[in-house]
Computed example of a mutant assay.
Amino acid sequence: MIRLLRANMGRLKKETAFWAAIIFMVFYALCVCLMAKYSMDLNDNSLPLDGLFLYGYGLTGLIAVPGLVMAAVCSLFVGTEYSDGTIRNKLIVGHSRAGIYLSNFITCAAVGIALNLSYALVVCAVGIPLCGWFTASAGTILSLIADGVLMLISYAAIFTMAGMLMQNKTLASIFCILGVVVSMFLSFYLGTCIAQPEMIDTLQIIDGEQVMKSMPNPRYLSQTVRNIYQFIIDFLPSGQSVQISGQTAPHLGLMAMYSLVIIICSNIIGIFVFRKKDIQ
Rank of each mutant, 00 (worst) to 15 (best):
I2L: 09
A7C: 09
M9E: 12
L12D: 05
F18I: 07
F18S: 09
A21E: 05
I23T: 14
V26Q: 15
C33D: 15
D41P: 12
N43K: 14
N45S: 15
D50H: 02
D50A: 01
G51M: 13
F53A: 08
L54F: 10
Y57N: 01
G61A: 00
I63N: 02
A64F: 12
S75E: 00
G79T: 02
T80I: 12
G85K: 05
I92H: 05
G94C: 07
H95Q: 10
L102I: 05
N104I: 00
F105R: 03
V123I: 15
G127H: 11
F134L: 07
A136V: 15
L142Q: 10
L150Y: 11
L152H: 10
M161V: 05
A162Q: 02
G163Y: 05
M164I: 01
N168P: 06
N168S: 01
L171S: 11
S173P: 07
C176M: 01
V181K: 02
L190W: 01
T192K: 05
I194L: 13
Q196L: 10
T202I: 14
L221I: 01
Q223G: 15
Y229T: 08
I232D: 08
L236S: 04
L236N: 02
P237R: 05
I244V: 14
A249D: 11
L260A: 07
C265D: 15
I269N: 02
